[in-house]
Design a protein around this nucleic acid. Structure first.
Lengths: 248, 248
DNA sequence: CGAAGCATTGAAAAGCTTCAAGTGCGGTGG
DNA sequence: CCACCGCACTTGAAGCTTTTCAATGCTTCG
């Protein structure tokens, strides 16, 4: 896949992301792009693409916009279990189970490709590099989930919020959406609270602490990290879990 | 696979577990059993089978005993991200990544089968039911990880500990290791604290609360749940995430 | 202009942690 | 056989992080 072919191509972040995880064959990239082009969809902010308990029979690949996976308890308490960013694939293999154990909601308007289970199975059967890339994606997403467990279980509020900011910027960086330390950040403090397991009030105060120490600027849905390595140190952040190093 | 063939067979919990996730073909079950028999190992309590940052080139299937997956922060804080019980497979597919993002430590002495990556790939290539069962296992383990995130993020201490007890007994039940509400529970309060993101002191007090309300008996590494549905209600526990319902 | 949603602030209370000390048990060595 | 040691468990008290409650300001939007 030549880089110039990707300019203005909605599939660009996906190809870029999967390529970073496992090199795609030319053939695989072409197959995938066709499938994406044939299944384009859009959704507005605040919509649910998937609701806990529903059956799902397709795979969604996010081309632009932000979403989150979340679960709610009977009494309304909500926990966001992770964010879904451009280039991410939702539930590449979850159709093996019958029912979703979580919901997926949009934070912004999004564009995505929906690929029917049958087509997706053909894709991964026809190209081994595609199959492996999607599995790597699922595995990295699992590693991310583990890191969130650690974060919420053992990091204090300041570290926890800082860690989340580091993770998001690293992930956006992988798909080319960070410019000189700045990226979009369309996440309300309510969402941030539900993602970190904190209260909104405490998230607010924690953000102020990060701002006052000049580590970040967060204004108008825009995040700038002024001193990345200081923020990473504070957060005890290491990006390894978000990457797949080549073996051999 | 006829049940009588499984009596006294070390592979029994594994076959039983995978079968519950996805029905195994006779052929697949035989292949798997052979592979298990050829790779038998043992380890004592308090050992690490895998250490964070290592490369891993094999899959481990637990036949008996308890383990946990955990991660540590630089300053020593530890978070157990989940427990590994008999019948569970560690890292069925993680060899796609090059380096483990967590450690695996034993809580008891364990027996397990170690299957080289190359052999494992042959197994799943030769029998589709095996491949699907292992993938379901990975997916259920992912769902479990999400539920832990919810638990630590949004459940209070009492609910959180209760939830963990419910989960463990449900999982043990699936492999036939629960007898009339009672099961082994070889987990120290220290481990419990590291699993729930609480302090040992608070875990101690929380357990006493559960004992005082007559919901559980926990003594001599043995857990009895006296009133399962009351405990589940208290914990806001639903076992759906641990199961794969048949589709169609 | 009023309503709605998000951000912010102050104050009080709760939940959980930390520190510190003491108990009980099984295992080991004298 | 008993004393000692290590380890897990338990308890009390103090303190801190985080939550809850409540109110206010800001911005956007119909």
């Amino acid at each position: 896949m030549h880089p110039q072919k990707l300019e203005g191509n909605p599939a660009q972040p996906v190809i870029r992301r999967l390529n970073a995880l496992r090199p795609l064959s030319e053939h695989g990239a072409v197959l995938l792009q066709q499938a994406i082009q044939e299944g384009l969809h859009r959704a507005g902010p605040g919509e649910d693409l998937v609701i806990e308990g529903e059956a799902v029979d397709s795979v969604r690949i996010i081309l632009s916009g932000w979403l989150c996976r979340y679960k709610t308890l009977e009494d309304g308490r909500r926990q966001i279990v992770n964010f879904i960013l451009p280039g991410d694939t939702c539930d590449a293999h979850l159709y093996l189970l019958s029912v979703m154990d979580y919901s997926i909601g949009t934070l912004t308007s999004v564009s995505y490709a929906e690929i029917k289970r049958s087509l997706f199975e053909k894709l991964v059967a026809n190209d081994r590099s595609l199959a492996e890339a999607f599995w790597c994606e699922t595995l990295v997403s699992g590693a991310t989930q583990r890191e969130w467990t650690v974060s919420i279980g053992r990091r204090v509020a300041l570290e926890r919020v800082a860690h989340l900011l580091c993770e998001i910027q690293e992930r956006l960086h992988q798909v080319g959406l960070v410019d000189d330390g700045s990226c979009a950040f369309p996440v309300t403090q309510i969402d941030l609270a539900d993602a970190t397991g904190l209260s909104v009030v405490h998230v607010n105060r924690t953000l102020q602490e990060l701002r006052n120490s000049r580590l970040i600027v967060l204004r108008d849905r825009m995040l700038t990290i002024n001193d990345l390595s200081a923020l990473q140190d504070l957060a005890l952040f290491s990006p390894d879990y978000l990457r797949t190093k080549r073996r051999g």
